[in-house]
Design a protein around this nucleic acid. Structure first.
Lengths: 183, 183
DNA sequence: AATAATAGCTACTGACAAGTAGGTATTGAG
DNA sequence: CTCAATACCTACTTGTCAGTAGCTATTATT
């Protein structure tokens, strides 16, 4: 839906609260009631954007789970997709939207989706530890830390910068794989 | 100032936009004009909270720069302090406040402070690479990634959880030092 | 041609919260 | 005792949106 792509760009650029649906409507050359006609209320617009982004991550998670290779390889594939999605509009929206923005209901819906992503990441870490391709560690913290690290580019990456999203994603994942200490 | 500690808690819990100064005033048993008397406007309240948090980080940065030891040791000390500050009220506020929240002026002020923190982190990485205590890497990305990873707990850590902030900070920094790959 | 559904509009209402006007009580200095 | 500064109040005004009422075109169906 065109409304969503217009809305998500404005939410990301100016923030949800600073974006009125009048603005979104105007950028599409329609009027606000038209948006209400399709989507009912403002939060719904945001929730659609968020779930669209989460769906991209869930697809990447399913691909990684279904893939072949050692745990570290499947995890890396997922982490790279995760970072890439988070540099696109709908993925960024998930990172930039603070959860107090949402009503309790919507917050819970999104929280469950995020939990599924996190669970996949944690499982992949555990599988890697089990097959020896990942160093033993507390998988829950590891997954949380990896996700946080890969959320960063949503905030600082600019699409006109010198490095492309895939380059950045690979560089970050390499860094996280190797760690700071020399070998 | 008591206003700031009350305000920062509400900003963190409910978000800046969802917190009215009437609410903050009521929680202190005073009236809204009292806050205006001292701080002029709502954004000023937020900016004071943010700069207070940044000052804690700048102090930690100065300590780390002045410290002894190899690059990795000074960096680790800074990262641990950084993570700890970000689990406290004023530090969290810096992480939770999206920058479109601020007016262009205030945004620039805060951006410069953040840049100083980031520059210190990057310098410490470079010094570690130079003295061989840190594996060669692109220091800018490394610093960005470390900071993002250590911003995570601001979002998920709960003060009544089983692990204390220092424990979490050390665990995350250990993980980032070692990386995923086995040695 | 008549009906109904779809998609869109203009012009409102209502709530909420930022910020202000203009006052009062208390304290300290001369 | 007076003046002025400080700290605080109640009661506004004002702007901005979210959301709604109720109208009008434009298809699609029978």
């Amino acid at each position: 839906m065109a409304v969503l792509t217009a809305a998500v760009k404005m939410f990301n650029a100016r923030g949800y609260h600073a974006t009125s649906l009048d603005d979104v409507a105007a950028s599409l050359g329609v009027s606000k009631p038209t948006i209400y006609h399709y989507l009912g209320n403002k939060e719904r617009v945001l929730v659609e954007c968020l779930t669209f982004g989460m769906d991209q991550l869930l697809t990447a998670a399913a691909d990684a789970r279904a893939g072949l290779g050692r745990g570290i390889d499947r995890l890396r594939a997922f982490l790279i997709s995760y970072a890439e999605v988070n540099m696109e509009d709908f993925g960024r929206c998930n990172i930039l939207t603070a959860n107090e923005t949402l009503s309790p209901d919507a917050r819970e819906t999104i929280r469950l989706l995020k939990r599924r992503i996190h669970a996949t990441m944690q499982e992949l870490v555990e599988e890697g530890i089990a097959d020896g391709s990942i160093a033993p560690c507390y998988a829950k913290f590891a997954a949380l830390t990896l996700a946080s690290a890969l959320n960063g580019p949503s905030r600082w990456h600019s699409p006109d910068g010198p490095q492309s999203p895939p380059e950045i994603a690979v560089a970050l994942v390499n860094f996280l794989t190797a760690g700071l200490a020399p070998r």
